[in-house]
């Protein structure tokens, strides 16, 4: 993941509806939004920010499918080919009794694979220092961050737009 560096304008909002309405207005002014931080998910913010729908569902499906194939192959190979056992004279490889283990391994691989993918793509890890623009974004404030280098407008102009759109304060933050 790209390193976060440079000068940023941090707009603080205290209501999720205000920030939701502000985002399209700010984008219309030609300001590129770096990122929005919130204490809980703001529903619909992905659409106004233009975030694509996550492909994690597909990842989960693929991992689940891997689990299904793995479980079935394992059971058929072990009891059908590697060491067929006579258990009460029954068939060596009865499919119905393989269903529970197959189901469990499907769920196990789908969950762990999806969560692992989520942590990797979101760069979430127990070590390393996260960049926190405003610590209140994990409490009750909604933070809209604009990267100055990526925008043509001056800091004052952007700041005025943010305030006009309902930001309660706008701070400059430099991250080395």
């Amino acid at each position: 993941m790209a390193k976060i560096q440079g000068d940023f304008l941090v707009g603080v909002f205290d209501d999720d509806d205000v920030i939701m309405h502000a985002i399209p207005e700010i984008r219309e002014k030609g300001i590129k939004i770096f990122e929005v931080y919130s204490p809980y998910p703001i529903h619909g913010v992905d659409d106004v920010l233009g975030i694509k729908r996550s492909r994690l569902t597909k990842a989960a499906f693929m991992f689940g499918l891997t689990g299904t194939i793995l479980a079935l192959t394992m059971q058929f190979w072990m009891l059908g080919f590697d060491w067929p056992m006579n258990i009460g004279g029954k068939a060596h490889t009865p499919f119905p009794t393989f269903v529970p283990v197959t189901f469990e391994l499907t769920v196990l691989l789908a969950s762990f694979g999806m969560v692992g993918t989520f942590l990797v793509v979101s760069d979430l890890k127990p070590y390393g220092k996260p960049v926190v623009f405003d610590p209140r974004s994990t409490d009750d404030k909604f933070i809209l961050v604009v990267e100055l280098q990526k925008n043509k407008m001056s800091a004052d102009e952007i700041s005025a737009v943010l305030k006009q759109q309902g930001a309660i304060e706008v701070n400059l933050k430099t991250i080395a």
Binding site: I51, T57, V107, P126, P130, T138
Partner: peptide, 27 residues
């Protein structure tokens, strides 16, 4: 895990929660 609550992370997070719920229900 260095969580900062960015919109992109929340979007993925919600997907993960929903799929986990869907997987956990039959489980």
């Amino acid at each position: 895990f260095g969580w900062v609550g960015s919109a992109k992370h929340w979007s993925r997070y919600e997907t993960v929660s929903l799929i986990l719920a869907g997987l956990s229900t039959p489980l």
